[in-house]
């Protein structure tokens, strides 16, 4: 029984990381219909930004978070302005363009910083475990879960309680009519893209103490994040959250019942079945495209 509880926590921990990555992806796709294949590289940039801030400025992972968010958001903003914005009318080309951007960023980091794995020290005040009976929870992972919930809440507030959020939702529902009402869709797009990138950056910063910081680190994660977005239903915030939980827990469960390799196969098979019967995901949003 202990194993089950511990495994539920492991699933939750994995889900929280997935959620932060997938949120950015879901917002960018939901708003602009852009499938951002460079998203994994934003995660990687976030991790490297954390490494740079720690190595050269002596900042801890948690202190660095706002700066990492701003830095990666700025990178996302520039990429949106320079490349993605010119391709809104050609959604298929954005896939190719973002894929290319991803490769460029990855290789630039490899050439500029080097291909070997970088070390980032985790926060000292979050070492150790919280132990309840036989349930052992790493403090750092608890922090990541709390932070993911915070980000989900903040994003929800941003979307529903601010003027920007209203404009954003208007643009999602109908870009042309929104523009007639004086909303600058291009500006909304730029900010959204930057926000999504920033979230990816935060995810990258948060995983550095647990994972290995290398130029290719984002590639594997972004595949999982795409799965979350597909299962959750495109453009739905709550759907994304629910799907992240579901995939995290199911992965954890399968990996303890079978093993990580078979668990992964089972999860992918499950997702194929799911989209066969619910092609628009668990919680499709009712927007007109």
């Amino acid at each position: 029984m202990d194993v089950v509880f511990n495994q539920v926590f492991a699933g939750l921990s994995f889900a929280s990381i997935l959620l932060i990555i997938a949120l950015g992806l879901a917002i960018i796709y939901g708003t602009m219909g852009v499938i951002n294949l460079a998203h994994g590289e934003f995660v990687m940039l976030g991790a490297y930004a954390t490494w740079a801030l720690q190595t050269y400025a002596g900042l801890g992972v948690v202190t660095a978070l706002p700066l990492v968010f701003l830095a990666v958001a700025a990178a996302g903003w520039i990429i949106e302005k320079v490349i993605v914005q010119r391709l809104y009318a050609r959604p298929l080309d954005t896939i190719l363009a973002t894929w290319g951007i991803g490769i460029i960023i990855q290789q630039a980091v490899r050439l500029g910083i080097g291909p070997d794995s970088r070390f980032v020290q985790g926060p000292q005040w979050l070492t150790g475990n919280l132990q309840i009976g036989n349930l052992v929870m790493s403090n750092y992972r608890l922090f990541v879960i709390a932070f993911a919930i915070f980000i989900l809440g903040a994003t929800w507030l941003l979307m529903t309680r601010t003027e920007f959020g209203m404009k954003l939702r208007a643009v999602i529902q109908n870009r042309n009519i929104s523009e007639c009402y004086g909303i600058k869709a291009e500006k909304v797009y730029s900010v959204t893209f930057a926000y999504g990138a920033g979230l990816a950056g935060i995810a990258g910063a948060l995983i550095t103490p647990l994972f290995s910081t290398i130029p290719t680190m984002g590639t594997g994660l972004v595949v999982d994040a795409f799965l979350v977005v597909i299962v959750g239903g495109l453009g739905s915030l709550m759907g994304t959250a629910a799907a992240a939980m579901l995939i995290g827990e199911v992965t954890a469960l399968f990996s303890i019942v079978m093993n990580d390799t078979l668990g992964r196969i089972a999860v992918l098979a499950g997702i194929i079945l799911l989209i066969r019967f619910r092609p628009r995901g668990l919680f499709p949003s009712d927007t007109r495209r």
Partner: peptide
């Protein structure tokens, strides 16, 4: 890169 399940199993 996520070894929580493995670590839980080791603990058990």
């Amino acid at each position: 890169s996520d070894f929580s399940s493995v670590i839980n199993r080791i603990r058990a």
